[in-house]
Design a binder for these strands. Structure first.
Lengths: 356, 356
DNA sequence: CTGAAAGCGCTAACAG
DNA sequence: CTGTTAGCGCTTTCAG
């Protein structure tokens, strides 16, 4: 339920200051004894305004509590100072953390953050198809773990809309992503170092593998690590966990009830790992005695249950993407930088050497 | 990580239809051979438009892919078709689910959803203080578990802004909340029925107890149930868990390492309960053999670990609030209805009779 | 460096 | 029932 997580004992609230009305540019102009055009220039920091005039205007604006009406500014300029973040869903650990990161930056930078969920491919295509419409609601959008095919990317690229992606890496837009092959290797290598040779993987079907495939890359990383010691990833030991707790539970149950169960399980997310831990417990198996478990994310619960995991800095993903967008919207024509976020292995107590 | 939770195998995407431009009301007017005013009326379903004219206009609009420019409409009408949701934080199970519920309704109803986080009381006051400003960004706001003092409520009430609250119940605005006293009683009664008499509670400090106090009410519910059998809630058995997993872990550790530990623990949220379960495990205690644990929420993980809990329908809270707001914005002057959301006990395997 | 004036695209009286 | 005419509040030429 969490309603108070962040409630640090704060300084006494400023006795609820009364709501103060906003005024129009014209009132400010009159008060400062200049024209509205000058007020507009002065307040937006444009050149060609005498220092003295600017000061005068600023004072008047402050006194009148003036702030440009966003609707009017938007109509006149076409920019809305709003960013939309498109996520498949919002009520999951990963996505809510990404949104949190983006929100923090947006608030800080004076942008409004709109949340759009596009749970399936069809809706995602629709989001792109209605980009012309969205352009009138927002200045930019952040696509989070949303696979955009080349054709749609190209369509978006031709628009005035600023775009950033999280997860997918494109050559048109700035992006943030982790090296998922490395994520997989990191987990697998740890397991190999402990002596495991048969590793089970709880992953997920990639929806559109051709463009963008997180599970696939992580699994490739596992294969890579395994390959280096002349080993191999058994396809039969890779099962779908749908990135949910329950999916993880079921996948692990299947894996562990095999005649030849793996000695370790790599779940592609902590939530699936939690499911796996529960499954092991329910089967009377000891972790890490009978089976080791590794996850990805570093969920809050992970440290508490001692889950070994590959940590990602998820909120940072959102923050970096938002910052890139804001920068671009402010005109800083930076290269379409790709930020590769770090990920690191956090060894805790769900992993250990295999039996025998 | 969860990016694909909701990815159901969808029908093949409609081969990315090209982005089609938007046109202005004037183009539609010309195409339909009428004035812009008529177009505006026809398209907004206002009366006083001949059926034939309306059809004509609608066809033209469809052909030109016309949709009113939101910025222009907003400037002219003052309404933004946007709703803001104010949460203390967004990356927690409870709040992200509330937001998800609200988002679904907003999308369905053609409203944009803005997310604002106000982690502490000070920022919350600021949100209210800048209501005049917010009014120009949004038509309404949903305050989620945000304690608004009477004075601020009154200030908000005088504005054009539509308001709905989740958690707090006011007599000015529509609200959604659960009967938290009942939530507490439900949990306690279950424990009492099993034979427990000494119940520990993991709760949280209320920030502004005078206006709105979820933990306090749930605890009161416990006291009530206890009182009915002539028992009493020992103040020393009520400890703060800050509504976080870790806080729950620490609170439970403290509770269980007492010389006279309670035989059952009621955690005011599932996340705190997860922490408590981990603490019990780490102390070598058996659940429910040595100690029973009950939570509140019915988190996804709860069914998997078998946590007995009082289920709340969280996403529904967000949806109901959003719907109330939309209704109000559409002019249906309904009574400031207070929706009391249901909560029910879900008995699983973390509760059982006490030892001896 | 500053002001006047023309929009941005839509809605809302007000006539007719 | 429909068209004309003002705005909504700001930005942006264009003169000066």
């Amino acid at each position: 339920m969490n309603y108070r997580d962040a409630v640090t004992p704060t300084t006494k609230a400023p006795a609820s200051s009364p709501i103060v009305e906003r005024s129009t540019i014209e009132q400010v102009a009159t008060a400062a004894g200049v024209s509205v055009a000058t007020v507009s220039r002065a307040l937006r920091g444009l050149p060609n305004v005498a220092a003295s005039t600017r000061t005068k205007v600023e004072r008047a604006a402050r006194e009148l509590n003036y702030r440009a009406n966003p609707a009017a500014a938007r109509l006149a300029t076409g920019r809305s100072h709003t960013i939309a973040i498109v996520v498949p869903l919002i009520n999951s650990w990963y996505f809510s953390n990404v949104v949190a990161g983006a929100e923090a930056v947006c608030t800080e930078e004076g942008y409004d953050l709109l949340v759009l969920t596009a749970p399936n491919a069809e809706l995602r295509h629709e989001v792109v198809a209605t980009a012309a419409e969205l352009e009138r609601h927002t200045d930019g959008m952040i696509f989070v773990e949303v696979a955009l095919p080349p054709r749609e990317l190209e369509q978006l690229g031709r628009r005035r809309l600023a775009v950033a992606t999280i997860g997918q890496q494109t050559d048109t837009f700035p992006s943030v992503h982790v090296d998922n092959v490395r994520v997989g290797s990191l987990a697998a290598q740890h397991l190999l170092d402990l002596g495991h040779r048969r590793i089970g993987v709880i992953g997920a079907q990639a929806e559109e593998p051709s463009f963008f495939d997180v599970p696939g890359q992580r699994i490739a990383g596992v294969g890579l690590a395994l390959g280096q010691i002349g080993g191999d990833l058994e396809p039969a030991l890779v099962v779908d966990g749908q990135f949910t707790i329950e999916g993880g539970y079921e996948a692990a149950s299947r894996l562990l009830s095999r005649p030849d169960p793996p000695s370790a399980i790599f779940a592609l997310s902590d939530e699936m790992a939690f499911g796996a831990l529960a499954a092991a417990r329910d089967m009377g198996l000891n972790v890490p005695g009978d089976v080791s478990v590794v996850g990805v994310d570093d969920h809050e619960l992970s440290s508490v249950v001692g889950l070994t995991t590959v940590r990602q800095h998820v909120a940072e993903h959102g923050a970096v993407a938002a910052r890139a967008l804001v920068r671009r919207l402010r005109g800083q024509r930076t290269a379409p930088g790709h930020h590769v976020s770090t990920a690191e292995l956090v060894v805790r107590s769900t992993t250990g050497p295999p039996k025998l």
